[in-house]
Amino acid sequence: MFSAIAYELSSTFLEENKSCVSPDMSKKPAAAPTLHKVIMVGSGGVGKSALTLQFMYDEFVEDYEPTKADSYRKKVVLDGEEVQIDILDTAGQEDYAAIRDNYFRSGEGFLCVFSITEPESFEATQEFREQILRVKNDESIPFLLVGNKSDLAEKRRVPLDACRDRASAWQVPYVETSAKTRDNVDKAFLALIRAMSAQKKGLAVDDAEHEGQSCAARCCVVA
């Protein structure tokens, strides 16, 4: 008896739901833009948070405070289409590695950041890449290699060629940014978002490669 009532109840509810949802359905895609989940990875102090804050709020914070984990949401108009992005700023320090793992699983695109003034951070990108691939189990996951602190060119210790070589070995685009001067910050994020939405739309392979090349080309100009 109970289930019969339950069935009737749920069916009537569902019917009504349909009736009231259906007129709105056409509007739904506009109301809920696609959501992309970006994750910032890289060693401590390379400027992940600085990049994120610059992108989110156009602000640059001088004083360094290690991040545990922070998450932001922003709406971006990309090629005329409105998309929503969630950015997760992770901890560079190994202390928080366990927390990081939970996020890696749900990440859809990764900005792998190192500092061009710090060879150790460049080396560490290798490990981050491996970790991500291990979790995501997908070579074609949207991924961007980012050399940050390009404003400190005089202190540069990671040669541009090495960066490019690594990027091409991984078949990912390479961008050099400066969180301080906002140089290429938007470009880095947008390139990644474009790759993510391309992959989601299923045009994945071709476009991503194309994207990678064009981006790489742009980077050359910048660098």
Binding site: D70, S71, Y72, N102, Y103, R105
Partner: peptide, 13 residues
């Protein structure tokens, strides 16, 4: 749960 995690993290931030 993923969603909840991100949401909570966002609120914390």
């Amino acid at each position: 749960r993923d969603q909840q995690l991100w949401e909570a993290q966002r609120i914390v931030t």
